[in-house]
Design a protein around this nucleic acid. Structure first.
Lengths: 137, 137
DNA sequence: GATAGACCCTCAAGTAACTTGAGGTTCAAG
DNA sequence: CTTGAACCTCAAGTTACTTGAGGGTCTATC
């Protein structure tokens, strides 16, 4: 089974070499084996681990959450409830951010509608958007 | 009219002193006048400017967008269309992020539902969430 | 005047999650 | 051998702050 160099591992897992080195540095990935030339040599286990990490990141889990999920995958002493709790915590954060962004969308769309209805391309300082933004919250 | 010190300005505008110093450093706020003791002395114009900046930040405009909005407020040669365009660009970004988060919410909620239905607190490594996360995207 | 606590100052480094750049080595193809 | 692509380490940059070290100023109280 030939080993993969870092660029190939990156291509296999949808990331890039600096990010892989970063993950190794912060301990998310184990230190890689090296070939005779000192270059990193990866195997299928590394592909699986990095795939998992990238998936977690895609779903927005923080590096620290990923770290604990990775630990859970390796520990039969731990309960599945731990993974569920990490996911639940993240879901709450996603929902909070969703609500925040909905409010922002409404406000900004409202600013633009007001500008369209009343400014007609007048001077910048008189723009309804800028006037709205100048009001204390 | 008595001047405000930095803490008072921060309290008036819902921010804190290090953030104000930061804004001065990056040029969003003009360099403050100083009293005889070398401490920053702010007036009502500064309150207005910082209020505007904080409002823009509350609505999620980036520092660079805020910088251009601030420039627009001061320039009657510029058209209100410029402000509208900054807002529109930001609205598109907010909508993109909203869609992304909706997808995340659905996926993560689905993971949790699957775990609830099939894991029953089994060992971590067997958790449906972790198995889902281990699959290539 | 002395003291103490709150607030101020500058400077620099830290945060999260990467990304980029400098300077040098290895690899594989021609 | 040469060349260009990919690899290496180390350090700094990105964004928008935040924190911490070390020292100065202000104000109220005694």
């Amino acid at each position: 089974m030939p080993h993969l160099r870092i660029g190939a591992l990156a291509a296999r897992t949808g990331t890039n070499a600096p990010t892989i080195r970063y993950y190794e540095e912060i301990g998310l990935l184990r230190p890689a084996d090296r070939d005779a030339g000192g270059q990193r040599a990866y195997g299928e286990q590394d592909v699986k681990r990095l795939t998992f990490i990238r998936r977690c990141r895609e779903f927005g889990f923080s590096i620290e959450q990923v770290r604990s999920l990775v630990a859970l995958v390796q520990d039969r002493e731990r309960s599945c409830m731990d993974a569920r709790n990490v996911a639940q915590e993240h879901l709450l954060a996603v929902r909070a951010k969703l609500n925040e962004l909905k409010g922002l969308e409404r406000s900004i769309a409202g600013f633009i509608a007001t500008c369209d209805a009343s400014c007609a391309g007048g001077p910048g300082p008189d723009c309804a958007i800028l006037e709205d933004l100048a009001r204390p919250s």
